[in-house]
Design a binder for these strands. Structure first.
Lengths: 111, 111
DNA sequence: TAGCGACATAGCAAACACGCTATGTCGACA
DNA sequence: TGTCGACATAGCGTGTTTGCTATGTCGCTA
């Protein structure tokens, strides 16, 4: 079994990094879609949409870009700590890091 | 008398535009400094710091960049509607657009 | 009206962001 | 072990951002 979780622990970190990650139409869309994986993506027969998130290819397809481009957008979000990637078997699932997103929103109240 | 106020009326507009403007270390600093003009900038004998804001040169100097570079950072904030520029006599004053900033923070709660 | 101080604009180079194609890696399965 | 599906990484062209210097504009004031 190989399960790898990736977070950059940005719950309190650099606001600028988070803002750079958020300052993109496509990445804002991804975050919005991930609010409700079951509603926004096709059914996954291999990995729980609720606990693990949406798989890479579904996001890529919905974004309407090539697979590497979509993967990079996701990586930007992961590197900023706003999204958590779970790698299992052949697939990678992405879900929102609600704690980090809430922290960013909180910091924005003092901007 | 020539007084010109500049706002891009972004009180409800594009979140992405605001985030792009905010995704910069220097521009975040400017916004922070403008929270208290009197405390963060030298005394202005020509224009009320509280009602009109800080003059261009003071911001530029504190940023530690050239005058055109500083002016452009300010312009980015103005274009995004986050800062209001008031031009009077020879000087241009910049102050925070609290309404727009609050609106952005509010939108961030649903991100 | 000549000149000066305070900005704004133009124009340019370096760095970064973003799209793509091509290719590498890694786990399953025949 | 060979192949295939699902990503990740490399590399490349293009557009945008960010810094600078040089220069334009505008409102005084001499």
């Amino acid at each position: 079994m190989t399960v790898t979780e990736t977070t950059t622990a940005e719950t309190e970190g650099d606001l600028e990094v988070a803002l750079k990650a958020l300052a993109s139409d496509k990445r804002l869309k991804i975050l919005d879609w991930l609010k409700d994986v079951e509603a926004n993506f096709p059914p996954q027969e291999h990995g729980d949409p609720v606990t693990e998130g949406a798989c890479n290819l579904f996001v890529v397809e919905k974004l309407g870009v090539s697979q590497p481009t979509g993967s990079r957008h996701l990586k930007v979000l992961v590197d900023a700590g706003l999204v958590i990637a779970t790698r299992r078997k052949g697939w990678t699932y992405y879900r929102r890091n609600e704690d980090a997103l809430t922290a960013v929103a909180e910091q924005m109240r003092e901007i």
